[in-house]
Amino acid sequence: MRTEASPQWLVVLAFIAIYIIWGTTYMAIAFGLQGFPPFVLTAFRGIIAGTLLISWCLLRGEKLPSLAVIGNSSVSGILMLVGGTGLVTWAEQYVNSGYAAIIMATEPFFFVLLDKKQWGNYFSNRWVLTGLLVGFAGMLLFFHYTSGSTQQTNDGAMLLIGNLVLLLGAILWVVGSLYAKNKIDHSHSNTLTTGLQLLAAGLFSGLTAAFTGEWSGFSIAAVPVAAWGGLLYLITMGSLVAYMAFTWLITIRPPALVSTHTYVNPVVAVFVGWIFANEQITWLQIMALLIILAGVLLTNVPNYKLAKA
């Protein structure tokens, strides 16, 4: 973590970006899906945002890194932004944006479970163990209340599949994050590394869309204005503003503090979905959400104590 002073107003704006903007991108995905198949949408988002960032870096005189750095950035980008964000986009065909945000709030649990180097610290700490148990109890309750919210068997089956795909997306986002932490050479700018991740993810999404047949049934002329608006928002606010804010904040503030966006994003997503898309959520599902967030909070107590030390 870098220690040089940063303008406080810029830090505040960056936190607003990861708190509010990331919470609204779930609704933007829903709008985008009105005209784009899921991996086509992810392809456009990644290719355009990645190309813009890399072009900006080259215009400023930065040099492209080695093939090893490009390769590691690409792998992490594909895991996080195709396996993570791409699967969220696919799942939102069957799961509304508020549900998607709630499931993705489980990411901190998978950081604990998959960060093998820290197991000795995690599993010897009562806060972490309690948080894991509370969080998974909340997940089970949410699945139960969600599966019982529809009367149609087919819809219920796809709802369950969508939630399971979201869990896989959360896991792959964590795997990609850990890979990036351990493998990427951080001597290059965050902007360039992020651009490489986005471009690789966009190209891989395009190949995935070809494999699944999405391109064959896609007509760019038939895309409605709302879907173009969703894509534009995802590129500018989701990828260029919020994702860049996250990659910057993680270098100047304690990770435990930056990770607090996982508490706020689901609340924002549920509220935005209710206001703009009339998405319904029951009080029992809200209770499950609060239990999940309580578990996330408990697992991070040791990090908060360390950050204050």
Rank of each mutant, 00 (worst) to 15 (best):
R2E: 15
T3C: 13
A5L: 14
A5P: 10
V11I: 15
L13R: 03
I16R: 05
A17R: 06
I18Q: 00
I18A: 06
I21E: 03
Y26S: 08
F31Q: 09
G32S: 03
Q34P: 03
F36M: 05
F36D: 10
P38E: 01
F39E: 00
V40P: 07
A43T: 03
F44Y: 14
G46S: 05
I54P: 10
L58D: 00
L59W: 13
L59A: 12
L59E: 10
R60D: 13
G61Y: 07
E62V: 03
E62L: 03
K63F: 01
L67K: 13
S74E: 01
S74H: 02
V75A: 07
G83H: 10
G86C: 09
G86E: 09
G86T: 11
T89R: 00
Q93V: 09
Q93H: 10
V95H: 08
S97Y: 02
A100C: 06
A100S: 15
I102Q: 06
M104W: 06
F111D: 01
L114A: 11
S124F: 06
S124G: 13
S124N: 15
W127S: 11
V128S: 04
L129T: 15
T130F: 10
V134R: 08
A137I: 09
M139F: 13
Y145Q: 13
G148E: 11
G148H: 12
T150S: 11
G156P: 08
V165L: 12
W173H: 09
L178S: 02
A180S: 15
K181T: 12
N182H: 14
N182Q: 12
K183S: 12
H188K: 03
L192K: 01
T193N: 15
L196T: 00
Q197A: 04
L203Q: 02
G206C: 04
L207N: 00
G213W: 08
G213T: 02
W215A: 03
S216W: 11
F218N: 08
A221P: 01
A221D: 15
V225A: 14
A227E: 09
Y233P: 05
G238A: 12
V241M: 08
V241N: 01
M244R: 10
M244H: 02
A245S: 14
A245P: 04
F246R: 06
L249F: 06
I250M: 07
I252D: 04
A256E: 05
V258E: 09
V258F: 10
S259L: 07
S259K: 05
T262L: 08
Y263S: 02
Y263P: 03
V264Q: 02
V267E: 00
V272N: 05
V272Y: 04
V272S: 06
N278I: 00
W283K: 06
W283Q: 08
L284H: 12
Q285L: 04
M287N: 07
A288V: 02
L289M: 13
L289G: 06
A294Q: 08
G295T: 01
Y304W: 15
L306H: 14
K308Y: 11
A309I: 14
A309G: 13
